[in-house]
């Protein structure tokens, strides 16, 4: 199917020091929106390589351009300038129909709000990408994906019959069922309580570790970012930091510190409520 994309000069596929191929290779990407009369420069020249098997977080405050970058990485939007090679294909040159194929074959999305279809069983949800991809043996593959996220016994459940964590696991199964080049997750634990969040994070880590699935998290939560292997920080449309995490946290092994602990040392002695011992 990718004959379509292999016309013209093949890009040189970058490799890192371990010899891993670059799944994502972004070169000098800019993105400009026209908001009325105002030009908004959401991305001002981003260079980025993510190699196969990496587990990366993209961080940044609101307005930093991280959402824009995510949409471009996800082939949901096109950069204004620059090139984006996804698994060797220059996505920035594709039309809408080809982008749909790229999204189907190369990218698995996981959203903060799950985005499951109403009144559709878990199995059908997971079959969806296979269906649009025209893949055969859907039921078998969808079942396998659901089993991989621990929902092998919930195939016929509707979203309304599943907990938030389970719903997100259905979404993860949907993301991996087509064996994409990468999983792109937008605040995947943002709508979950901490226990479900930990569960979901465990699944991502397991899949990355055991199956080598390239995973990109978009988050503003430093705690989540600490679970990944590499953190890319964006501010005002440019990459301000791109660092390896020294010792990534393993989900479930460390208790998340409370906000009070995180903000330790910034308070005055006066307090207005809460338990006194929280501050000691």
């Amino acid at each position: 199917m990718l004959k379509l994309f292999k016309k013209g000069k093949e890009p040189e596929i970058l490799r890192d020091e371990l010899g891993r191929r670059a799944v994502i290779d972004i070169r000098q990407i800019t993105k400009m929106y026209q908001m009325g009369d105002v030009e908004v420069h959401a991305l001002r020249g981003v260079d980025l390589q993510i190699y196969e098997g990496e587990f990366v977080s993209i961080m940044g405050p609101s307005g930093s351009g991280k959402s824009t970058l995510m949409y471009i990485l996800g082939a949901l939007d096109q950069p204004t300038n620059g090139a984006y090679y996804l698994d060797g294909v220059d996505v920035s040159k594709l039309d809408e129909k080809q982008l749909a194929i790229i999204r189907n074959k190369k990218i698995g999305f996981v959203f903060q709000s799950f985005n499951l279809l109403k009144r559709t069983t878990a199995l059908r949800q997971v079959e969806l990408p296979l269906m649009y991809g025209g893949v055969s043996g859907r039921t078998k593959k969808a079942k396998a994906a659901l089993e991989a996220v621990g929902l092998g016994k919930r195939l016929d459940h509707l979203p309304s019959e599943l907990s938030g964590g389970q719903q997100q696991r259905v979404a993860i199964a949907r993301a991996i069922v087509n064996e994409p080049a990468m999983i792109l997750a937008d605040e995947p634990t943002g709508n979950l309580d901490s226990r479900s969040g930990t569960e979901v994070m465990q699944i991502f880590q397991t899949m990355n570790r055991e199956k080598g699935i390239t995973t990109v998290f978009v988050t503003h939560d430093p705690w989540i970012a600490r679970h990944t292997n590499r953190v890319i920080m964006l501010r005002d449309g440019v990459v301000v930091a791109d660092r390896k995490v020294a010792t990534p946290l393993v989900a479930g092994e460390t208790e998340r510190p409370s906000e009070a602990e995180e903000l330790e040392g910034v308070f005055q002695e006066v307090y207005y409520g809460g338990k006194e011992e929280e501050y000691n």
Binding site: G74, E96, A100, I101, R103, N104, F109, L128, Y132
Partner: peptide, 10 residues
């Protein structure tokens, strides 16, 4: 949007 994200064409 979801359908398009998972590969539905127009």
């Amino acid at each position: 949007g979801l359908r398009k994200a998972v590969g539905a064409r127009g």
